[in-house]
Design a protein around this nucleic acid. Structure first.
Lengths: 244, 244
DNA sequence: ACCTGAACACCGTTCAAGT
DNA sequence: ACCTGAACACCGTTCAAGT
């Protein structure tokens, strides 16, 4: 590992982002300062600008770094026993994501604020989409579910899947090769997009925010009413006093 | 209306908060600056500190102001036709709240960031709780529903109902009179708290975040699976291709 | 009583200069 | 090539001073 004359390891983008994560752990994302990040690296603030464009870029990178950790955690999950319903598999993935996010109290807010759609985020959504496809969900249903679960699981709120890879031109050739690269890396997302685009009659625009919101809301109301009718309460599956 | 020598209306906390709302509309909450708010009032920044403690206080007040607008909008809703199921009434309330919130693009994030539990927020939750009680939901179910719907409707994420009114002492007398005042102003919330406290056997701590999260998650998964089994998609109630 | 001017300790970011 | 010093245009906030 090369060293500068002063004996410090050389700065890299990764070390800068890691230092930012440490600073956020210590003082929160709100009070994170370029100067504080630099201090942790024994460097002047201006040195950071060689590795990140500006503070926004650094925070985006920090959000992606958190999503990387989610993917690491998901990868270490044991494969589900054969015959496990897809809902149980999806449930575990979301709960693991939440567990990792809560290790950094600042993480949910950061991911929510910056709706970045970087490789780590795409990976997470692709894996979860695959679970639903395997469970027999249609492309449309997977799409709606990603909105509803994505919001709940990782606080993700941006337009899902404005996924034209950065740098890809709009002219045909490049578009095609970009899409075929996408389909190898993110097969479930690609399938979802392709099937919905193919069957455009049921889609009222790509990611209609209002429709997605109502989808999630209606499911919640339906589930609450079902529990009321059953006379129960909720999580503790208690046998409480019936409703007045 | 009294005027200063310079002919301007005198500053009030309300005018300061209103100006902050205008500034936020123009440049967003992120770029809102004490100096910008002051400019809009033709005043120096330091004059604001006579009416708000600091910037944090101003942003809290701004969040409460938005919740006031939600309550105004809810108050103007026509009463539901007799026989309307509670789910439809609740649905409309949540959708109206969202509509108002979206009029100020910065509003959802602000309300989410500052989980204030001021009078306006309490009023909104009390009204929605009343709808569920009227629909026959148990206190426990109302509580869980407030968490699930509150998050979805207004991005509310703080501990619901750390509601000991500010300034109330812990000694018995004052506590009692504070609670009876609460019960007049917020009858549904008071009922919810009282019934849950009374029947403590089913409650595992007041506002167990993890349990509330799983409550909402399970309802979503259940609803998605139900739609898969029905072979449908979601919002457009379309008759698309069945799942693969 | 209410507002202002000047000042303080901080920001993010730039650019020429050092090594 | 990589980092630093000095500087710029901003912040939030204070406090004594004005009217």
């Amino acid at each position: 590992m090369p060293r500068t004359r002063a004996g410090r390891a050389p700065l890299t983008r990764d070390r800068v982002v890691a230092a930012a994560s440490d600073v956020a752990d210590a003082v929160g994302t709100q009070r994170l300062t370029m100067r504080l990040v630099a201090d942790r690296l024994d460097v002047e603030a201006m040195a950071l600008y060689r590795h990140v464009a500006d503070k926004d870029d650094l925070l985006d990178a920090l959000a992606e770094r958190v999503l990387d950790r989610l993917n690491d955690a998901a990868a270490q999950l044991p494969g589900p026993a054969p015959g496990t319903p897809w809902t149980a598999v999806a449930r575990e993935r979301v709960l693991v994501a939440r567990e990792v996010l809560l290790r950094h109290p600042w993480a949910p807010r950061l991911v929510h604020e910056r709706g970045t759609m970087g490789p780590a985020t795409l990976r997470w959504f692709d894996d979860l989409s695959a679970v639903l496809f395997t469970g027999g969900c249609s492309a449309d249903l997977v799409h709606h579910a990603m909105h509803a679960l994505g919001t709940r699981a990782i606080g993700y709120n941006a337009e899902l899947l404005d996924v034209t890879p950065t740098g890809a031109e709009q002219d045909g050739e490049e578009m095609l090769s970009a899409m075929s690269a996408m389909s190898e890396t993110y097969p479930a997302i690609t399938r979802m997009v392709a099937e919905i685009a193919h069957d455009a009659s049921t889609t009222l625009g790509w990611c209609d925010d209002q429709a997605e919101f109502e989808f999630g809301l209606d499911i919640l109301l339906e589930g609450i009413e079902r529990r009321r009718a059953a006379g129960g309460d909720g999580p503790p599956s208690g046998a409480t006093g019936l409703s007045p």
